[in-house]
């Protein structure tokens, strides 16, 4: 299983150039399917071949590691069609293919994070204010990025910038 340092090391400078390029497209109001296709083809986040039902490997918990290498997206409720397009663009712009992503819909608190042991990244869309805390790295190596709600991101360009900066800084960190 790739750890976070491996994960960071495989990001190339080229990928970050893409981020800035994508940012322009991302902030555009009309979704561009070509951009989505290009982004999902990025293979920087290669999936581990470890089966998802492999035995627990977390050193800090006896909980089962059930999301080896997956990216987990947390949403308070099902996205609308346009929100789904936006979500696809966000994950694609991060170089994530849809089959690498597990979506979880419900109300989640910080105490719920252990259930996503083994995930490499959690994007949680549900913060209620403008003050979005920095990303956190849990003891299990999971990167947790709090994001503003998709409904807000749909209409608020400033909220998109906040999210984008958060994604950039957390991936650069």
């Amino acid at each position: 299983m790739n750890n976070i340092s491996d994960w960071n090391s495989i990001r190339s400078h080229q990928l970050f150039q893409r981020f800035f390029f994508d940012e322009v497209l991302f902030l555009a109001s009309d979704p561009d399917p070509r951009q989505l296709e290009t982004s999902t083809s990025v293979g920087a986040y290669a999936q581990s071949s470890t089966p998802v039902d492999a035995p627990a490997q977390s050193p800090s918990s006896n909980s089962t590691s059930i999301f080896e290498e997956k990216v987990v997206v947390l949403l308070p409720e099902s996205p609308t069609e346009t929100q789904q397009v936006l979500l696809n663009k966000i994950t694609a712009a991060c170089g994530l293919a849809q089959d690498q992503t597990n979506m979880h819909i419900g109300i989640f608190g910080q105490e719920d994070i252990p259930q996503f042991l083994g995930a490499r990244l959690i994007l949680s869309f549900g913060a209620l204010t403008n003050i979005v805390p920095d990303h956190q790295v849990h003891s299990d190596g999971i990167k947790y990025i709090p994001c503003l709600p998709l409904g807000r991101l749909e209409t608020d360009a400033n909220a998109k910038k906040i999210l984008w900066n958060s994604l950039k800084s957390s991936i650069l960190a």
């Binding site: 006896n62 105490e111 252990p114 259930q115």
Partner: peptide, 14 residues
């Protein structure tokens, strides 16, 4: 083996 009710429910469903 979950640490929360949600986690246990997820483990079983998954």
């Amino acid at each position: 083996t979950g640490l929360t009710l949600q986690e246990n429910a997820l483990i079983k469903a998954k």
